[in-house]
């Protein structure tokens, strides 16, 4: 009887450890397009992300419609003409933090990691890799990264008429403040 009790406890403890995951629903993703005629920025503050501190698996999901632009019409065209958000409402990333073991989540500090995975934008999936910095302080974890994507890689068509207004390469900034998933 006692043995069984211990066993049950062990199972729960095991569950707790393996299920150690961090998440956010308020990740910030912004992008920057620097074209000769126009500089465009947009920010999404409702990005969802989760990672597993054991396996290093990391995932992101964002709603394209949640990007906010300075100009209302730009936001409309971004959704209507470029990202086609009614057809492809979400953009996702599924990957792995390669050297997750090097992060000591119990010790404050900055840790550089490599992340590789598959990024889906506009319905097109592409392999990407980037460096990311994880900052641990007082039990809080902040992840930061940067990524450059080619607009053409994701079948986003820029008409000749506006090719001086929209950059071919877009810089994406990623920042998330993670919380322990309970």
């Amino acid at each position: 009887m006692k043995k069984i009790g211990i066993c049950t406890l062990l199972v729960f403890v095991f569950l707790q450890i393996t299920a150690q995951k961090y998440y956010t629903k308020e990740g910030v993703i912004s992008f920057y397009s620097n074209a000769p005629l126009e500089k465009i920025t947009a920010t999404n503050t409702k990005a969802t992300s989760i990672f597993d501190m054991e396996t290093g698996a990391i995932e992101w999901a964002i709603l394209i419609k949640a990007f906010e632009f300075k100009k209302a019409l730009m936001e409309e065209h971004f959704n209507e003409n470029y990202l086609e958000s009614s057809k492809y409402p979400k953009s996702t990333f599924k990957g792995t933090i390669k050297n997750i073991q090097q992060i000591d989540f119990s010790k404050d500090g900055e840790y550089m990691t490599n992340i590789v995975g598959r990024l889906t934008i506009h319905g097109v999936e592409k392999e990407v890799s980037t460096e990311a910095k994880f900052t641990v302080s007082n039990g809080k974890i902040i992840g930061q990264s940067e990524l450059t994507v080619l607009v053409a890689d994701y079948n986003i068509d820029i008409p000749a008429l506006v090719r001086d207004n929209i950059a071919k390469e877009v810089l994406i900034n990623i920042e998330a403040s993670y919380e322990l998933l309970r």
Binding site: T8, V11, F14, L15, T18, A19, K21, Y23, K25, T48, I50, F51, D52, A57, I58, E59, A61, T92, L181
Partner: peptide, 19 residues
Amino acid sequence: LLCIGSIQVHAQDDLLSLL
């Protein structure tokens, strides 16, 4: 049954579905 349950939790590769 609990063990089976724990395995299932562990085997879940779609992390986002946890949220």
